[in-house]
């Protein structure tokens, strides 16, 4: 018991929890982006992917619960550590201390964190529940149309682009930092570790930013594509009605 308390109460233990949950969330955003890239394949593929997830409740709810727990722990422990850190220098420097090597990303973690949290709430509200009618009527199953309609609105795209820039910064420091916090360190792989962390952060950030840009520039979401997406649901409805009738 004493031992486990080390993990939840000590400065190092709490940071380890923040790191492990951070890694989970990092993993999720990579997967999330990989799925979203299906937007470039076409409306059918993307909507099928969305339907596939929704059609698999254990996967869906397992992921949701894991993410929720991760976010809660990530935020709670970060806040506890931040409070503690603020009291560790109750009286600050009267002539400001100068950072020597701290990166911009590291210095802004305290800002990028809360902003990303707000963004996540917005993002969930936009696409999941309740589903906001941004740039068009929200359609619970035609996810492709929701994305395209949303990103056609310039300020929605602006929010996503800015938020994903922040996400990139957060992951840039967070990725390396998490590895350090869980003690994944060896002189042999340190350079590689840093490159991987940076590479993945750039991949997630750039990939996510590319989507609204692609929509704004009409690279995806042409009238034809939107019509195909919509048509799929209409044929489906017709077929369903027909088969239903036959069965009756």
């Amino acid at each position: 018991m004493q031992a486990v308390l080390t993990l939840t109460r000590s400065t190092v233990g709490q940071k380890v929890v923040v790191a492990v949950t951070g890694v989970i969330l990092f993993g999720f955003v990579i997967g999330h982006l990989a799925g979203n890239l299906l937007l470039f394949v076409g409306p059918e593929a993307f909507n099928a992917y969305a339907a596939g997830i929704k059609g698999n409740p254990p996967l869906l709810w397992g992921t949701r619960v894991t993410l929720l727990v991760s976010v809660v722990l990530h935020v709670t422990f970060t806040m506890q550590l931040a409070r503690r850190n603020a009291t560790a220098r109750a009286r600050g420097y009267q002539k400001p201390r100068k950072d020597q090597i701290t990166t911009y990303a590291a210095r802004t973690m305290i800002l990028s964190g809360p902003l990303l949290f707000a963004y996540i709430l917005f993002h969930i509200a936009h696409f999941t529940a309740p589903g906001l009618d941004l740039g068009g009527t929200f359609h619970p199953e035609n996810v492709y149309a929701n994305v395209v309609n949303g990103f056609r609105t310039w300020w929605v795209s602006a929010i996503y682009i800015f938020a994903n820039f922040l996400l990139g910064l957060h992951l840039f420091h967070g990725g390396w930092s998490a590895a350090q916090s869980i003690g994944a360190q060896s002189p042999k792989y340190d350079a590689l570790k840093k490159q991987v962390a940076v590479g993945l952060a750039v991949f997630v950030s750039a990939g996510n930013i590319f989507i609204p840009i692609a929509v704004l520039t009409q690279l995806i979401g042409s009238a034809d594509q939107l019509a195909r997406a919509q048509a799929a649901f209409e044929t489906e409805a017709v077929t369903e009605a027909a088969t239903g009738a036959e069965e009756e």
Binding site: V16, R84, N85, I101, A106, S177, Q180, G183, A184, Q185
Partner: peptide, 28 residues
């Protein structure tokens, strides 16, 4: 004392060049 947030300012200030690799080792 506060907790580490991996800014590595300590390493830059250390007159003996002690590396933050030791912090990772401690975390492990």
């Amino acid at each position: 004392f506060g907790g580490c947030t991996n800014h590595r300012e300590c390493e830059a200030a250390c007159p003996k060049g002690i590396s933050t690799d030791f912090i990772a080792r401690m975390n492990r």
